[in-house]
Design a protein around this nucleic acid. Structure first.
Lengths: 207, 207
DNA sequence: ACGTCGTTGCACAGCACTGTGCAAGTCGAG
DNA sequence: CTCGACTTGCACAGTGCTGTGCAACGACGT
């Protein structure tokens, strides 16, 4: 009774994790990837996936929950106790960039309203935090933009996506991409290019 | 023989145009829209659509060709004979914004590699022009960015998409959106916010 | 050696969509 | 009115996916 279900469940758990991992990668490549594609990519038969997740919807839902949680933690942790909005944005973007995979999954899935309807809802609190931060910066004059904070949040999201795409196409090295994306996000928010560059250099030097 | 095929072909041509129009709108909403959805939205039976287009692929292809052509013409016309890179970008973005529908269709369809494989190829010349323009601006010092010109082009694309989304969600009025998007694109390219605002005001005053 | 649990392979029903064929309509031009 | 074209409604085969059932197989701890 000491290690009760340690039997084949270790192998089973490993399979479950691997299925989730490979599903993330596969859905990233094609948001409409079938259960068969995912199963084969995980080196497993389709029937086995249904042994772990009752439906495609459930699998994706698990993935989405994990992604949202990872993003929320990264974002919250990065800018805890940071007063300056510009620096908070910089830290936030750099932190989110580290787990851009999760982020892209959400963006990709959110565009098919069919699959999972509640992505935007589950992502809403995170987005609201970002909007508040941007608004704060606009109020203080640190940021400036013809767009309202809520729209600026969209721009920031898509910007991360664009830079990720650029990395995929080999236009930017993965190392530079995070800092470059952050600088671009800040300048798009109206922060002077020189200030943004300095800030990002300062913030990312401790990594 | 004077007006030969004027018979019911006028109605037929009208149908064909309406199918294309409504297909644009429908595929914008859901890039995986079925032939039946499109047909019903056009007030027609599915079988009729197949009377005009031999396959779903052909329909989409026609749509893509039209979109690419419209974009190329708008872009080329907008910046003909404009020397300053910043002004050229401003005019180009404003012009493209006017037909953002077509643009969004391409972006949306390009993300499913399954449907039409050659979108990026057909869009390539347009993108190359943009890259050259951005490079020119970087060389002259009008623009500044940690990203290379080719990656900046991606950022610009996604930015238009983000602002369009903001308009859809009612965060920005459609009137302001074009100018706001242009200013944001310019500032993201490193143009100081004040300069960008002035430039856009000047360029768009003649509309 | 044995039971348990995960895995496999196969088969099946159900669904949604594509593309085609065909007979019966409809509408406008001559 | 009548011809010719476009359109409609229906039926059909084919495909690819989901979710489920079931029997056989494998591995691992005891």
């Amino acid at each position: 009774m000491t290690a009760m279900t340690t039997g084949s469940s270790s192998r089973a758990d490993a399979n479950r994790r691997r299925i989730l991992d490979v599903a993330l990668a596969e859905l990233l490549r094609d948001p409409d990837a079938s259960m068969d594609q995912i199963a084969r990519a995980a080196g497993v038969v389709r029937r086995t996936v249904y042994g772990h997740f009752p439906s495609r919807e459930a699998l994706i839902s698990t993935l989405v929950d994990g992604a949202v949680q990872a993003l929320a933690e990264a974002d919250a942790g990065a800018r805890a106790g940071v007063a300056d909005p510009a620096e908070a944005v910089a830290r936030s973007v750099l932190a989110i960039w580290e787990i851009a995979d999760r982020y892209r999954l959400l963006v990709a899935l959110a565009q098919r309203t069919v699959t999972v309807q509640g992505i935007r809802e589950r992502l809403a609190p995170l987005r609201e935090n970002k909007v508040r931060l941007l608004q704060h910066g606009l109020d203080e004059g640190v940021f400036s933009s013809p767009l309202p904070a809520s729209a600026l949040a969209y721009v920031h999201e898509q910007m991360l996506f664009a830079v990720t795409e650029a990395v995929n196409d080999g236009l930017v090295t993965a190392e530079e991409a995070g800092r470059a994306a952050t600088v671009t996000v800040l300048t798009a928010a109206g922060v002077p290019a020189s200030t943004a560059t300095e800030l990002v250099a300062k913030v990312s030097e401790g990594s």
